Simulated scan of single mutants.
Amino acid sequence: MTKKAENVIVGISIGDLNGIGPEVILKTFEDNRMLEFCTPIIFGNVKVLSFIKKTFELTCNLHGIDNLDQMVIGKINVLNIWKESVNIDFGKNDENVGKYAVKSFTEAVAALKNKKIDVLVTAPINKYNIQSEDFKFPGHTDYLDQELDGDALMLMVQDKLRVGLLTDHIPVNEVSAHLTEELIRKKLLTVNHSLKQDFAVNKPKIAVLGVNPHSGDNGVIGKEDDQVVKPALKKLFEEGVLVFGPFSADSFFGSGQYEKYDAVVASYHDQGLIPFKTLAFGGGVNYTAGLEAVRTSPDHGTAYDIAGKGIADFNSFKEALYMALDIFHSRQQYEEMTKNPLKIKEKQL
C-alpha cells in the first residue's frame, strides 16, 4: 500500500442500505477528479455496491479488496467486511440491514482509531434499526465519543455558519438537568479549540443561546439562564474565551445576528438544528468536533421516501467529504504552527 503525500485516505461507512446513503456515495465519485486528492475506502461489500451502481445506472469503477493493505490509490476501494448477500428493499425499515450499517460503521471507526484511514465520512443510519445488545447508542456521535480520545460535540456547518449543541440526543424535559456549569464550560472550550484547530479562526467569537424563552426574562420564565448559563459564560470570558450571551433564541437567526459570530451554541437539539437546517438544508455538514480524529456526515437522514428512485441529491455528502479533507489539512497546519510559535504571530499580523 503506497500513498501520495497529498492524497488523503477517506474511510466511508455505508449507512442504511435501504436508504439513500449508498446512492449518494457512488454519485459523489462519478466525477473521477475526486480521486486526484483523496482515495475512498467504502466499508461494505463490492457485490452490494455493484448492485447499487447498476440500479442507478452509474459508471464509476469499483475496486473490491479483502483487507486494507490491498487498497489502491486513485481507485474507489470497497472493503469486503461481509461475504453473504443482503436483501435490499429501498425505503423499508429493516433490522437486518441495520446490523450491516453498524458493522460498516464500527469497522470504519476501528480503522480510524488505528490510523489505517485518515478521516471518516459516515452515510446516514436509521437510529431505530441499529439498536441491539451489542450496539446501544442513539447515533454515530455517542459511539465515536466512546471509542476516540476527546469530548465529542455535534457541530453543524455550512461555510461560516456553525451551530454547536450543549446537549444533543436527549428528551427536552431532561435538558435543564443536564445543563451544568461544568458541561457548559467543557462544550464551549471544545468549540473554541475546534474553531482554532479545524477552521483556522485565530480569535473565535462564540454566541450562546439561552435555555428559556427570552433567556428567562430575568428569572420570570425559568432561572437556568441566570443561575447556570451566565456564570459559566462570565468565568470563561474572564479567562479570555470570547463567549457572548445568553441570547434570546427566537430572533437570533432571523435578525441575522448569527453572522457576527464564528459559531453559535444552542442549549438543545431542535433549538440549534431547526434554524440551521432552514438556512442550510442540503448543503450542510454534521461534524463531530472535539475528537482526536476527523469525522463528518451529511446533514440529512436515510430519506426512505425517495430511496431507490435515483433522485437523491448528493451535494451534502460531497460537502461532508470536502470538509473532512479541509479539516484534516487544517489540523496539520495547526500542529505545525503550534510547534513553531513564530508562524502563529506571523499569521496574526
Rank of each mutant, 00 (worst) to 15 (best):
V157E: 12
I20K: 10
F105Q: 08
T278C: 01
K103Y: 01
A293I: 00
L183P: 07
A263M: 03
L189M: 15
A152D: 03
A232P: 04
H193Y: 08
L62R: 12
I327F: 07
L179H: 05
P231W: 02
A123C: 13
G256A: 13
N315C: 01
E30K: 13
V241T: 14
V119T: 13
R185Y: 10
K4R: 14
V294T: 15
V8K: 12
Y100L: 14
H140K: 04
V294K: 05
D168I: 05
I73F: 03
F281I: 10
E6F: 04
V78T: 08
V285I: 11
H269W: 05
A324D: 08
D198R: 01
A232W: 02
A293R: 14
Y261H: 04
F247A: 08
L233R: 11
V163F: 07
D299H: 11
A312L: 00
L325M: 13
T55Q: 13
G150Y: 02
E259F: 00
K4H: 12
Y100I: 08
D225N: 10
A289D: 05
Q146Y: 01
D69K: 14
L153Y: 00
Q257S: 15
V78W: 07
A249T: 00
G139C: 12
L120S: 11
F37Y: 15
Q348E: 15
T190M: 12
K277H: 07
N7T: 15
R185S: 15
T122S: 15
N96E: 14
V285P: 07
F43R: 11
D168P: 00
K160N: 15
V228A: 00
G256W: 13
V294G: 02
I125S: 11
D16I: 05
K83W: 00
I12R: 08
L79Y: 15
V229D: 01
K347E: 09
K92L: 07
V220F: 13
N87H: 07
S297F: 07
G15Y: 09
S316E: 12
L209E: 06
L233K: 09
G98E: 13
D217L: 07
S267W: 01
V86C: 12
K99S: 14
V191D: 13
F90Q: 05
F244I: 00
F56S: 05
K47V: 10
V24T: 07
P204Y: 06
G98T: 13
